[in-house]
Design a protein around this nucleic acid. Structure first.
Length: 257
DNA sequence: TAGGCCATCTGGTCCT
DNA sequence: AGGACCAGATGGCCTA
Protein backbone atom coordinates (compact mmCIF):
# COMPACT_ATOMS: atom_id res chain seq x y z
CA UNK A 1 0.00 0.00 0.00
CA UNK A 2 2.59 2.50 0.87
CA UNK A 3 4.20 3.72 -2.21
CA UNK A 4 7.42 5.29 -1.17
CA UNK A 5 9.08 2.43 0.57
CA UNK A 6 11.72 2.29 -2.11
CA UNK A 7 12.24 5.94 -2.73
CA UNK A 8 13.67 8.55 -0.50
CA UNK A 9 12.92 11.58 -2.57
CA UNK A 10 9.69 11.00 -4.36
CA UNK A 11 6.44 9.47 -3.44
CA UNK A 12 4.80 7.45 -6.08
CA UNK A 13 1.17 7.76 -6.84
CA UNK A 14 1.09 4.25 -8.11
CA UNK A 15 1.78 1.97 -5.23
CA UNK A 16 3.65 -1.25 -5.48
CA UNK A 17 0.46 -3.13 -5.16
CA UNK A 18 -0.58 -4.56 -8.50
CA UNK A 19 -4.10 -3.55 -9.18
CA UNK A 20 -6.27 -6.26 -10.43
CA UNK A 21 -9.32 -8.03 -9.22
CA UNK A 22 -7.57 -11.14 -8.08
CA UNK A 23 -7.66 -11.86 -4.40
CA UNK A 24 -3.95 -12.48 -4.50
CA UNK A 25 -3.01 -8.90 -5.12
CA UNK A 26 -5.34 -7.73 -2.49
CA UNK A 27 -4.07 -10.13 0.11
CA UNK A 28 -0.60 -8.79 -0.49
CA UNK A 29 -1.80 -5.52 0.89
CA UNK A 30 -0.57 -4.88 4.40
CA UNK A 31 -3.72 -3.01 5.18
CA UNK A 32 -5.72 -6.12 4.64
CA UNK A 33 -4.00 -8.17 7.28
CA UNK A 34 -5.68 -6.50 10.24
CA UNK A 35 -8.88 -6.65 8.31
CA UNK A 36 -8.53 -10.37 7.85
CA UNK A 37 -7.68 -10.99 11.46
CA UNK A 38 -10.54 -8.90 12.64
CA UNK A 39 -13.23 -10.12 10.33
CA UNK A 40 -12.27 -13.47 8.98
CA UNK A 41 -13.89 -15.43 11.73
CA UNK A 42 -16.44 -13.02 12.95
CA UNK A 43 -17.96 -12.33 9.58
CA UNK A 44 -19.86 -9.55 11.22
CA UNK A 45 -19.67 -5.75 11.32
CA UNK A 46 -20.17 -3.14 8.71
CA UNK A 47 -22.85 -0.65 8.39
CA UNK A 48 -26.52 -0.45 9.02
CA UNK A 49 -28.74 -3.27 10.10
CA UNK A 50 -30.18 -3.44 6.63
CA UNK A 51 -26.78 -4.00 5.23
CA UNK A 52 -26.09 -6.52 7.97
CA UNK A 53 -29.16 -8.46 7.11
CA UNK A 54 -28.34 -8.25 3.45
CA UNK A 55 -24.88 -9.55 4.10
CA UNK A 56 -26.05 -12.30 6.36
CA UNK A 57 -28.25 -13.34 3.51
CA UNK A 58 -25.35 -13.21 1.14
CA UNK A 59 -23.09 -15.30 3.27
CA UNK A 60 -19.70 -14.76 4.69
CA UNK A 61 -17.75 -15.55 1.58
CA UNK A 62 -20.02 -13.56 -0.64
CA UNK A 63 -19.72 -10.54 1.56
CA UNK A 64 -15.98 -10.81 1.57
CA UNK A 65 -15.87 -11.27 -2.17
CA UNK A 66 -18.07 -8.24 -2.66
CA UNK A 67 -15.92 -6.24 -0.32
CA UNK A 68 -12.78 -7.20 -2.20
CA UNK A 69 -14.38 -6.24 -5.45
CA UNK A 70 -15.46 -2.86 -4.19
CA UNK A 71 -12.10 -2.22 -2.63
CA UNK A 72 -10.36 -3.09 -5.86
CA UNK A 73 -12.53 -0.72 -7.82
CA UNK A 74 -11.93 2.06 -5.39
CA UNK A 75 -8.23 1.40 -5.47
CA UNK A 76 -8.22 1.55 -9.24
CA UNK A 77 -10.22 4.72 -9.18
CA UNK A 78 -7.75 6.37 -6.87
CA UNK A 79 -4.84 5.17 -8.97
CA UNK A 80 -6.43 6.69 -12.05
CA UNK A 81 -6.87 9.90 -10.15
CA UNK A 82 -3.23 9.85 -9.15
CA UNK A 83 -2.16 9.18 -12.70
CA UNK A 84 -4.07 12.23 -13.80
CA UNK A 85 -2.37 14.15 -11.04
CA UNK A 86 1.02 12.97 -12.28
CA UNK A 87 0.08 14.06 -15.76
CA UNK A 88 -0.72 17.47 -14.42
CA UNK A 89 2.59 17.64 -12.60
CA UNK A 90 4.42 16.84 -15.79
CA UNK A 91 3.16 19.94 -17.54
CA UNK A 92 3.65 22.26 -14.61
CA UNK A 93 6.50 24.76 -14.66
CA UNK A 94 8.17 23.05 -11.83
CA UNK A 95 11.55 21.45 -11.50
CA UNK A 96 11.25 17.73 -11.84
CA UNK A 97 13.71 14.96 -11.42
CA UNK A 98 14.75 12.04 -9.32
CA UNK A 99 16.25 14.28 -6.67
CA UNK A 100 13.24 16.53 -6.37
CA UNK A 101 10.30 15.64 -4.25
CA UNK A 102 7.18 16.04 -6.25
CA UNK A 103 4.48 18.52 -5.51
CA UNK A 104 1.77 17.50 -3.14
CA UNK A 105 -1.69 17.11 -4.57
CA UNK A 106 -3.02 20.31 -3.12
CA UNK A 107 0.03 22.24 -4.26
CA UNK A 108 -0.28 20.78 -7.72
CA UNK A 109 -3.87 21.88 -8.02
CA UNK A 110 -3.24 25.36 -6.69
CA UNK A 111 -0.18 25.87 -8.84
CA UNK A 112 -2.04 24.61 -11.89
CA UNK A 113 -4.84 27.06 -11.31
CA UNK A 114 -2.46 29.96 -11.03
CA UNK A 115 -0.45 28.82 -14.00
CA UNK A 116 -3.58 28.81 -16.11
CA UNK A 117 -4.48 32.27 -14.91
CA UNK A 118 -1.04 33.52 -15.70
CA UNK A 119 -0.96 31.98 -19.15
CA UNK A 120 -4.32 33.51 -19.92
CA UNK A 121 -3.03 36.87 -18.90
CA UNK A 122 0.12 36.43 -20.95
CA UNK A 123 -1.92 35.49 -23.95
CA UNK A 124 -3.92 38.66 -23.65
CA UNK A 125 -0.77 40.71 -23.38
CA UNK A 126 0.68 38.99 -26.37
CA UNK A 127 -2.40 39.70 -28.41
CA UNK A 128 -2.12 43.34 -27.54
CA UNK A 129 1.54 43.34 -28.40
CA UNK A 130 0.89 41.86 -31.81
CA UNK A 131 -1.82 44.41 -32.32
CA UNK A 132 0.60 47.20 -31.56
CA UNK A 133 3.32 45.84 -33.79
CA UNK A 134 1.00 45.58 -36.74
CA UNK A 135 -0.24 49.12 -36.32
CA UNK A 136 -3.23 48.40 -34.22
CA UNK A 137 -4.80 45.88 -36.53
CA UNK A 138 -8.52 46.14 -36.23
CA UNK A 139 -8.90 42.44 -36.47
CA UNK A 140 -6.64 41.79 -33.53
CA UNK A 141 -7.96 44.58 -31.42
CA UNK A 142 -11.52 43.64 -32.09
CA UNK A 143 -10.85 40.27 -30.56
CA UNK A 144 -8.83 41.69 -27.69
CA UNK A 145 -10.82 43.23 -24.88
CA UNK A 146 -9.37 46.48 -23.62
CA UNK A 147 -7.26 46.13 -20.52
CA UNK A 148 -7.88 49.19 -18.36
CA UNK A 149 -4.80 48.67 -16.26
CA UNK A 150 -2.48 48.38 -19.23
CA UNK A 151 -3.65 50.43 -22.18
CA UNK A 152 -1.78 49.42 -25.27
CA UNK A 153 0.84 51.91 -26.28
CA UNK A 154 4.06 51.65 -28.24
CA UNK A 155 6.24 52.53 -25.30
CA UNK A 156 5.76 49.08 -23.89
CA UNK A 157 6.66 47.11 -26.91
CA UNK A 158 10.35 47.24 -27.71
CA UNK A 159 12.00 47.53 -24.33
CA UNK A 160 9.68 46.37 -21.66
CA UNK A 161 8.78 43.29 -23.60
CA UNK A 162 12.35 42.28 -24.13
CA UNK A 163 12.05 39.93 -21.17
CA UNK A 164 8.36 39.37 -21.20
CA UNK A 165 8.50 35.67 -21.84
CA UNK A 166 10.76 35.15 -18.90
CA UNK A 167 10.28 37.77 -16.29
CA UNK A 168 6.75 37.99 -15.01
CA UNK A 169 6.33 34.28 -15.37
CA UNK A 170 9.28 33.50 -13.22
CA UNK A 171 8.48 36.17 -10.69
CA UNK A 172 4.91 35.10 -10.31
CA UNK A 173 5.72 31.46 -10.05
CA UNK A 174 8.50 31.96 -7.60
CA UNK A 175 6.18 34.02 -5.49
CA UNK A 176 3.68 31.26 -5.77
CA UNK A 177 5.91 28.52 -4.60
CA UNK A 178 7.14 30.55 -1.71
CA UNK A 179 10.67 31.55 -2.50
CA UNK A 180 12.09 34.08 -0.16
CA UNK A 181 11.51 37.56 -1.55
CA UNK A 182 15.07 38.50 -0.79
CA UNK A 183 16.25 35.72 -3.00
CA UNK A 184 13.99 36.60 -5.86
CA UNK A 185 16.01 39.45 -7.22
CA UNK A 186 16.51 38.54 -10.76
CA UNK A 187 19.43 39.33 -12.95
CA UNK A 188 17.36 41.67 -15.05
CA UNK A 189 14.86 42.94 -12.55
CA UNK A 190 14.63 46.63 -11.97
CA UNK A 191 13.36 48.70 -9.04
CA UNK A 192 10.42 49.71 -11.16
CA UNK A 193 9.45 46.17 -11.89
CA UNK A 194 9.74 45.35 -8.25
CA UNK A 195 7.42 48.12 -7.19
CA UNK A 196 4.92 47.88 -9.99
CA UNK A 197 3.03 44.72 -10.79
CA UNK A 198 4.44 42.96 -13.77
CA UNK A 199 2.62 43.67 -17.00
CA UNK A 200 1.77 40.00 -17.17
CA UNK A 201 0.23 39.89 -13.78
CA UNK A 202 -3.05 38.12 -14.19
CA UNK A 203 -6.32 39.91 -13.67
CA UNK A 204 -6.62 38.29 -10.30
CA UNK A 205 -3.08 38.79 -9.25
CA UNK A 206 -4.19 39.35 -5.70
CA UNK A 207 -5.68 35.90 -5.56
CA UNK A 208 -2.70 34.75 -7.49
CA UNK A 209 -0.57 35.29 -4.43
CA UNK A 210 -3.15 35.03 -1.75
CA UNK A 211 -2.98 31.34 -1.07
CA UNK A 212 -1.87 30.07 2.22
CA UNK A 213 1.87 29.82 1.91
CA UNK A 214 2.03 26.46 3.55
CA UNK A 215 -0.08 25.05 0.77
CA UNK A 216 2.47 25.99 -1.82
CA UNK A 217 5.71 24.98 -0.31
CA UNK A 218 8.06 24.22 -3.10
CA UNK A 219 10.23 21.32 -2.07
CA UNK A 220 12.90 22.56 -4.39
CA UNK A 221 12.97 26.23 -3.55
CA UNK A 222 11.86 26.23 0.03
CA UNK A 223 13.06 23.04 1.54
CA UNK A 224 16.28 22.46 -0.28
CA UNK A 225 17.17 25.86 -1.71
CA UNK A 226 18.74 24.15 -4.65
CA UNK A 227 18.31 27.18 -6.88
CA UNK A 228 18.72 30.60 -5.45
CA UNK A 229 18.22 33.76 -7.35
CA UNK A 230 21.09 36.16 -7.24
CA UNK A 231 21.43 39.42 -9.14
CA UNK A 232 23.39 38.92 -12.28
CA UNK A 233 23.13 35.18 -12.22
CA UNK A 234 20.76 33.29 -14.47
CA UNK A 235 18.57 30.87 -12.62
CA UNK A 236 18.75 27.28 -13.78
CA UNK A 237 15.42 26.24 -12.36
CA UNK A 238 12.64 25.26 -14.67
CA UNK A 239 10.48 28.15 -13.57
CA UNK A 240 12.89 30.60 -15.07
CA UNK A 241 13.46 28.95 -18.39
CA UNK A 242 12.23 30.99 -21.37
CA UNK A 243 8.86 30.11 -22.69
CA UNK A 244 9.45 27.60 -25.42
CA UNK A 245 6.28 27.81 -27.44
CA UNK A 246 4.30 30.15 -29.59
CA UNK A 247 4.78 32.91 -27.08
CA UNK A 248 8.44 33.11 -27.85
CA UNK A 249 7.73 32.95 -31.53
CA UNK A 250 5.34 35.81 -31.32
CA UNK A 251 7.78 37.74 -29.26
CA UNK A 252 10.63 37.39 -31.71
CA UNK A 253 8.25 38.23 -34.49
CA UNK A 254 7.31 41.42 -32.72
CA UNK A 255 10.92 42.43 -32.20
CA UNK A 256 11.90 41.77 -35.76
CA UNK A 257 9.14 43.83 -37.25
C1' DT B 1 7.81 13.56 18.38
C1' DA B 2 4.34 16.25 15.98
C1' DG B 3 2.57 17.35 11.73
C1' DG B 4 2.07 16.67 6.76
C1' DC B 5 1.08 13.67 3.14
C1' DC B 6 -0.42 9.58 1.38
C1' DA B 7 -2.84 4.89 0.33
C1' DT B 8 -6.34 2.12 1.61
C1' DC B 9 -10.70 0.55 3.57
C1' DT B 10 -15.35 1.46 4.32
C1' DG B 11 -20.20 2.95 4.25
C1' DG B 12 -23.32 6.18 2.31
C1' DT B 13 -25.30 8.46 -1.64
C1' DC B 14 -26.25 9.28 -6.34
C1' DC B 15 -26.59 7.91 -11.07
C1' DT B 16 -27.43 4.86 -15.05
C1' DA C 1 -28.63 -3.70 -9.14
C1' DG C 2 -24.22 -2.28 -9.98
C1' DG C 3 -20.90 1.14 -10.40
C1' DA C 4 -19.00 5.79 -9.53
C1' DC C 5 -18.15 9.17 -6.35
C1' DC C 6 -17.35 11.01 -1.87
C1' DA C 7 -15.83 11.67 2.84
C1' DG C 8 -14.33 9.78 7.28
C1' DA C 9 -11.19 6.73 9.62
C1' DT C 10 -6.87 4.48 10.02
C1' DG C 11 -2.14 3.59 9.80
C1' DG C 12 2.51 4.15 7.57
C1' DC C 13 6.36 7.03 6.06
C1' DC C 14 8.97 11.21 6.09
C1' DT C 15 10.71 15.62 7.68
C1' DA C 16 11.58 19.52 10.73
Amino acid sequence: MDSDAGSSCSRSSSPDLVVDDSAGSFFSNKMFHPYLQEHREAGKHLGTEGKMKERSDLGKDDVQELRLKVNSRERKRMHDLNQAMDGLREVMPYAQGPSVRKLSKISTLLLARNYILMLSSSLEEMKKLVGDVYGGSAAVQARTPAHPAHPAHPAIAPTATAHLPLHPLAQSLHSLVGSSPSLLQHHSSSPASAAVPAPHSPPHSSSFLSFHPSLLKDPLHVNHHSFRHFPGMPCPCSLCQPLPTATSTLHSLALNK
